[in-house]
Design a protein around this nucleic acid. Structure first.
Lengths: 138, 138
DNA sequence: CTTGACTCCGTACCCCACTACAGGGTTTAT
DNA sequence: ATAAACCCTGTAGTGGGGTACGGAGTCAAG
């Protein structure tokens, strides 16, 4: 009987999560990706869940979070007992932070929508108050 | 009669917008900040509006836009005539982009809120499904 | 009219987040 | 059993976005 693999090699994981293989080691060194078990050979064997973790990291980065901040977010999963109130505290702060980002993005979106609707003609009038809409902002 | 200054020195602008003076030159080189007029001496004289522009840039950065993207956004103000349809096109794309970011942030926020509400006790039970909420995401 | 703060320019350097080797061992498909 | 493909480690290099510095000229308050 051959064992079902249920575990990913570095290359497989990298492909599945659409990151560079080297990035895995880099994240591991930074503590973003926990050290996976190894086989005899020293080869890493990642759990399937690592894919989601990486996708989360990548998604969060696009939203302007630094790797340190992302680590914070991910660590909230782990501080189960002990300082639960503290986790709540940090989570609440992050929520406010995120709320702020959302608000700013809404403003930006509105400004752009204004632009799109204002300048619906396709030429000539040459005067349309483009993005005076994007204001002092935040 | 002494002229009212109506114009900012590099230092004043930097302070007003809370950026480093060197950053102004850097942005100017990158084309993010238009070259301001100079006085005889070669000293730059910025219009007051530069403050808002800088604040916009800084705000957009926090939201995960690169300087190149920000430049795109700002340039939409300028392409008044000629390729108006094109501006609409780019604006529409940006809107979708922003929409996506907002959606992701909302998911993250929800996950964190779930966390905060789930783990409201202050100790002991030690078991709370922390951030299983932050899912595959996006 | 001096003196301390400000500005100029060019160049060099810094941090973050990767990304690319080099040199060597391991799997796996044929 | 062998070659292509993969993985290991360590170290070095890259690109984006600034930041610092040196040497020299300018401004403005006393």
């Amino acid at each position: 009987m051959t064992q079902k693999p249920t575990g990913l090699s570095a290359g497989k994981l990298a492909k599945a999560a659409d990151v560079n293989v080297e990035t895995l080691r880099y994240y591991e060194k930074r503590g973003l990706l926990p050290e996976p078990p190894r086989k005899e050979s020293g080869y890493r064997v990642y759990p399937e869940s690592a894919v989601d973790r990486l996708k989360f990291i990548k998604g969060a980065q696009v939203l302007g979070f630094t790797l340190d901040e992302i680590q914070d977010l991910l660590d909230m999963r782990i501080d189960t007992h002990a300082n639960r109130a503290d986790v709540r505290q940090r989570a609440t702060e992050k929520i406010a932070d995120i709320q702020g980002k959302i608000a700013s993005l809404e403003q930006m979106k509105q400004a752009l929508e204004h632009l799109v609707h204002q300048c619906h003609g396709d030429g000539s009038t040459a005067e349309c108050p483009i993005l005076e809409a994007i204001p002092t902002f935040r």
